[in-house]
């Protein structure tokens, strides 16, 4: 894992891995969606219950991405691992997107099922807060220009957020609860096996989607940094040459 701290090694490794990741993601989505549309409908909600297969995996990823982001930040903070910082930075917008997707699919589901787009229920509220925390975290990377400094500050933001997530979740639940309790627990499942298989495949597909997007996004950032470094070098050479020729011109004009 630490060998990958070297961007060149990472580029080579991820370049080989990425096509397989994308193929796996597409394959899992194809299989998962097939299962979703052949799985039985909920007898109460009809086709509406199929939103579950997008809603639940996005909700899981929105939370998992935050934990991943914080862990990557810690790795970067403790071992000065620049790629870990980049992983954290690039995981944030992806996680924020999944949080937003959770909210949007939830609203689309809530309107017909509960009769309202939005209620200030515990789980809805905590996903909304998670989304705001993502925005705050992304803002840190945006406003602090020095990327090394931004990484260190972002770690503190992620750490404080990580400590607070359980507290926020607990207090919001104390405050108001309407959403159904978690259906998948370690002791068993309240979902029928026919639907569960499709759901689990979708969970896997979303996880692979996250990994692929993260890889693409880190690779893009490394390429962008390299391009900027090259531009700077060319610019410096140009300036140096201009200086030389100006000086030469001035020297030539000088009468002796």
């Amino acid at each position: 894992m630490f060998g990958l701290a070297n961007p060149t090694k990472f580029m080579r490794f991820s370049g080989i891995l990425l096509p397989y990741l994308i193929i796996t993601t597409l394959g899992l989505f194809g299989w998962g969606l097939y299962m979703v549309f052949t799985a039985p409908e909920d007898y109460l909600q009809g086709p509406l219950s199929r939103i579950l297969y997008v809603h639940a995996p996005s909700a899981y990823l929105a939370q998992a991405a935050y934990v991943f982001m914080a862990l990557a930040n810690f790795t970067g903070y403790i071992w000065r691992h620049p790629l870990a910082d980049m992983a954290a930075k690039n995981a944030a917008p992806i996680g924020a997107t999944f949080a937003l997707l959770t909210i949007i699919t939830g609203m689309l589901w809530g309107k017909p099922a509960w009769g309202t787009w939005w209620v200030w229920d515990a789980r809805l509220t905590s996903v909304f807060i998670l989304f705001i925390m993502y925005l705050g975290y992304i803002a840190i990377w945006q406003v602090i220009e020095d990327q090394v400094k931004a990484a260190r500050v972002a770690t503190i933001v992620a750490a404080v957020g990580l400590i607070n997530i359980p507290i926020i979740k607990f207090s919001v639940e104390w405050w108001n609860t309407l959403h159904q309790p978690a259906s998948l627990t370690t002791s068993g499942s309240a979902i029928h096996p026919s639907m569960l298989t499709a759901l689990l495949i979708m969970f896997a597909a979303f996880t692979f989607l996250f990994t692929s997007l993260l890889f693409i996004s880190i690779r893009t950032e490394i390429n962008r940094r390299r391009a900027r470094a090259m531009e700077m070098r060319i610019l410096q050479q140009n300036i140096a040459q201009t200086n030389l020729s100006t000086r030469a011109a001035i020297n030539n004009q000088e009468p002796d």
Binding site: I129, L130, I132, M133, L135, G136, A139, I140, V143, V157, V160, G161, N164, I167, I168, F170, S171, V172, W174, W175
Partner: peptide
């Protein structure tokens, strides 16, 4: 503005309780 965005989520438990 950014402080608000950053700290607002952390204020919710205190406000609720």
């Amino acid at each position: 503005q950014i402080i608000s965005l950053l700290i607002l989520p952390l204020y919710i438990p205190t406000l609720i309780f």
